[in-house]
Design a protein around this nucleic acid. Sequence first.
DNA 1: ATTCATGCAAACAATTTGCACCCTG
DNA 2: CAGGGTGCAAATTGTTTGCATGAAT
Lengths: 132, 132
Amino acid sequence: MRTQNYSRKRQAIYDLMLSTQEHPSAEWIYTKLKPEFPDLSLGTVYRNLKLLEENGAIRAVTVISGSEHYDAIMTPHPHFICNLCGKIQDLPAKFLLPELTSVKRIRGVGQIDLTSLIYYGCCEECSDENKV
Amino acid sequence: MRTQNYSRKRQAIYDLMLSTQEHPSAEWIYTKLKPEFPDLSLGTVYRNLKLLEENGAIRAVTVISGSEHYDAIMTPHPHFICNLCGKIQDLPAKFLLPELTSVKRIRGVGQIDLTSLIYYGCCEECSDENKV
DNA sequence: ATTCATGCAAACAATTTGCACCCTG
DNA sequence: CAGGGTGCAAATTGTTTGCATGAAT
């Protein structure tokens, strides 16, 4: 991990990541922080997200319609992603069965660092809207 | 599903998808088919991959270093993705526990269409190389 | 002072799209 | 001949990067 100086903007990005239920993209974070940091640039958000990921402070969930989304909750847990609105929801860790996370190596395949379980479907808000 | 004409190129793309162990990106398919179809264009590959996906003939696995990768095996099964070389391997369906695939709906969250289980780590080829 | 952090704009790379033309049914 | 299908190139979009400047140690 490369040595880092303190940076008020990086701190703000991380704090925002921690405080939200969203699974933000760079753009989302940029828009949220811009009022407080009028001189914030999108490049800084990208750089810091990458840095935080390298430091193990946050992790990438997946790419949704072209943009990467991040999660600051580092306890292993699955996600639910709505195919209609793209919203990502955390699922309780119990949905990630111990039989899955206990697998550390698959013979003839490789060593496992991370297990990603994602359910794709239609969230309740979207299915309610579609009924109306 | 919109009505479609027969297209020799679409057929070739699908055949190639079926015949390979790779989990191709658009670029990979383009390169493979270009010799046989010298007038093939990358746009056509993108258009047809999207069409095949809409038709349920193939499915997107995930985005790896910026590009989408597809799978023509539609039987539910997990994947192993190497963080170093990016190679995607199919895992036997038994690795996708029935407790996972039997979940069709999560209360307060939504309906599930698809369950994606991806193991990320270091494949055997890459760990061998790193030892040398 | 030295190294890190940032704004800005240009560069990049994957994908999409408009349009004219060809092919399939 | 009507509606796909495609090549081509331009446009879009998310992300990265080079450089000059400002901040942290």
